[in-house]
Design a protein around this nucleic acid. Structure first.
Lengths: 224, 224
DNA sequence: ACCTGAACACCGTTCAAGT
DNA sequence: ACCTGAACACCGTTCAAGT
């Protein structure tokens, strides 16, 4: 909140990115307006246009920063492609949940350095699994879409303002458990064991299922 | 674009929802402002506040309308739970792609009638697959999250303004195929067969994988 | 009860002007 | 070259006033 004036020439993409993450961490991405960034940086809001063409450019840079953070916390490839794939996925989900309101934009292609490295790692797992080029490329696409889609969904819930988030969570804790068995016999039958919407076990199971299915396909592809 | 004045008392949730979908179809969800809806309806923009508490309420009603459209185009349950599950998923994805900018908000719980019915159908498939209550409830959660996440991701790309959408698609058609093999050996190896980001085969394969994995788990759960 | 008009506190973006 | 100030064309939402 200190609004001291910043020396001329000290503004650059890296400094602006850091300010954008700081403001977003405090109030969500909708708080990261040019006005708020200007205040955070001690500069005029429109000074940012010197360093990012528009808000979309800033957003894509934030997405790539997420990929960078994912890579930084990841051990190198081992000889177990499935374990490596799971590690990449778990770390991606973890970083997305740390920056939920940025993660909600993960359907965008950042087409920047750290995204390139993430893509290369996942394709590497598929090739080591024994898939041919076309199958490996297709499996990459499907696994990445699954991973980004599932993680962005979880992140979207986490990024909601507290009021809306509580309303959504409570709906599964209370409302769905009270639905009448007449029109909703299946919901009523399992209502007493409905998992929470934000239960971390959900993503863990989804990932296990996806990797099991890829492993089965890889075994089938390896057979003559 | 006809802005004739509407008779008093003829405004209601259904009419406003129809206007919201009409405006969204033409210019995306960001075009569905209260001003645009007022013009579409021949009413004052703020008149809508009589029928929806705020914009979020209107959005949740639009999400539930997507579930309604999905259900309307769906045959009844058969004795093949896996085929039924696939039918629900394919139809959901199809409807999401028809209304992409609404679908991007599918991480919200609408907690409304048509969503209840969708949930009941999917849980029904899991129970018929032979899962116990807790496993069926968990499998519902994971499959629904997968389906909504993947579909919302696809929809997010489709809902982008044409300029950003072309940039993202072209990145996979051109940029990713030209990356150097030095830092990106795996991308370079499969670059010639990278599938398009919006290839419908992607979701089809993802769905096949997920159902295969669920089937394998169901078989394991059925064994004594 | 239902709708309108005016006002409030914001947005992203542009462009000419300053240093 | 880098940044500021002012302006433009918007937003969602509130509230008193009209019918």
């Amino acid at each position: 909140m200190t609004a001291r004036r910043r020396p001329r020439g000290s503004l650059n993409q890296q400094v602006i990115l850091a300010a954008a993450f700081a403001v977003t961490e405090r109030g969500g991405l909708e708080a990261a307006t040019f006005q708020a960034l200007g205040a955070e940086l001690g500069a005029h809001p429109t000074a940012i246009y010197r360093h990012f063409r528009d808000k979309d450019e800033l957003l894509l840079a934030m997405i790539d920063a997420l990929h960078a953070e994912t890579l930084a916390g990841l051990p190198g490839p081992t000889d177990d492609w499935a374990a490596d794939l799971a590690a990449v996925a778990r770390r991606t989900h973890e970083v997305f949940m740390k920056h939920p309101s940025v993660a909600a934009y993960a359907y965008r292609t950042a087409h920047r350095e750290h995204e390139f490295h993430m893509v290369d790692r996942i394709i590497g797992c598929m090739r080591r699994a024994g898939f041919g080029d076309a199958e490996a490329a297709r499996m990459y696409r499907v696994f990445a879409d699954f991973l980004l889609g599932y993680s962005a969904l979880d992140a979207g819930l986490a990024a909601l303002d507290p009021v809306a988030r509580q309303a959504d969570l409570r709906s599964w804790e209370v409302e769905y458990r009270m639905l009448p068995a007449g029109p909703y016999p299946n919901i009523a039958a399992v209502a007493h064991v409905l998992p929470a919407l934000d239960d971390p076990e959900n993503f863990a199971l989804a990932l296990d299922l996806m990797i099991e299915a890829i492993r089965a396909r890889a075994a089938a592809a390896a057979r003559p």
